[in-house]
Simulated scan of single mutants.
Amino acid sequence: MRIRRGSRLAAAVTLVLAALGCNEGLPTRPDESPVLVLGEAVTVNGARGSEQVYRLTVPEGGGKLRVLMAGFTGDADLAVRYGAAPQPTEFDCASQSSFPVEECIFEAPEAGLWFISVLGYTAFSDAQLSASLLPQVGERALVSGVATTGLSGSSGDFEMFRITVPAGTDSLVVALDATGDPDLYVDFELFPLLNDYTCASFTETGSERCMIRSPGAGTWIIRVDAYLDFSAGTLIATVYPGAAP
């Protein structure tokens, strides 16, 4: 589960450290940490209880920062912090799920030095760790019941959309149909991650659907993710004041 800034940060990392048998926090080795280069993946392997720290330089005005670790066997977790190595009560994002993918996204990252910790919850191998800058483009606004057509993407790409849901709504239904294999992620007021969302649909077909009962009033963010290349995509988000059909 991704832990976002300001919510259960200390508790989440403390649980990870306890599971790893660590009592004094994550070690800080800013001068010895290997460098992670934007746009270049590194392979990380580790034993249960291991911790490896990388440092990353983010330029001024570079866009959104995405840190991704995927493709591994075993169970590894991720923690990211600006300016210093992550500690139990001091980090900006922690991602700890049982899936072979961990992800952190910062919409307005500070320029300078960032530190990324990879924690071995169990032994793990072949984790592909990368960091990239995404264009600083806002989410495309959707109108309830109106289709957005012509969507496409190459494997690894994603695009963001948003829809406003009024108070008292019975349900929000988001449907995606395409040729190829896109996936669908939906979250309330926050950027959906691959391992942290309110609803996700990732079948092996080009048809994905999310239904959220009694959605909160406000902005819902929709992520269309290209698991594999896809084209001819149509996205429809519909707000139902009464029961959805």
Rank of each mutant, 00 (worst) to 15 (best):
E60S: 15
G145W: 09
Q136K: 13
T169G: 03
L176V: 04
L176D: 02
G112R: 07
G206C: 02
G153C: 08
A123K: 11
D196K: 02
G6A: 14
L26P: 00
A41H: 08
R162K: 14
Y197A: 04
M211N: 06
I222R: 00
A147Y: 08
V13L: 15
A237L: 06
G168T: 03
A226M: 04
A127M: 11
G150S: 09
R209Y: 02
L176I: 06
F202C: 11
F72N: 06
G180W: 00
F106N: 11
E60W: 13
A244M: 00
T205K: 01
Q128D: 12
T198V: 12
R209H: 09
L190A: 14
A84W: 01
G150C: 10
V101H: 11
A178Q: 07
G61L: 14
M1E: 15
Q87Y: 05
E60Q: 14
V44T: 01
A131G: 05
F99D: 15
R81W: 08
S132H: 10
A167G: 14
P245F: 03
A94T: 05
L151F: 01
E90F: 12
Y227H: 12
A70N: 10
M69K: 01
T57W: 09
A232D: 15
E90W: 09
A178T: 05
S132I: 08
Y197L: 07
S231N: 13
L15P: 00
A200M: 11
L9D: 13
F124S: 10
C210P: 04
I163W: 02
V143H: 12
T179C: 09
C210I: 02
G62L: 05
L190P: 00
S130A: 06
D181C: 06
A12N: 07
L235A: 04
E24Y: 09
R48N: 08
F124C: 14
E51L: 11
T73K: 10
V101C: 06
F158V: 04
L129V: 13
L20C: 12
E40W: 02
L17Q: 14
D157L: 01
S97N: 15
V137R: 03
T203C: 07
P59G: 14
P245N: 02
I116F: 06
T238H: 02
S117D: 12
V35Y: 07
D225N: 14
G156R: 00
N195E: 13
G74I: 06
V13C: 03
Y54E: 09
G206R: 00
G242R: 06
L172T: 07
A123T: 15
F188I: 06
S152R: 04
A10Y: 11
L228V: 00
D77I: 01
M211C: 08
V173H: 01
V44Y: 01
E189H: 02
A244W: 00
D225A: 13
S231K: 05
P215I: 09
G71M: 09
E139L: 02
A175M: 04
I105K: 00
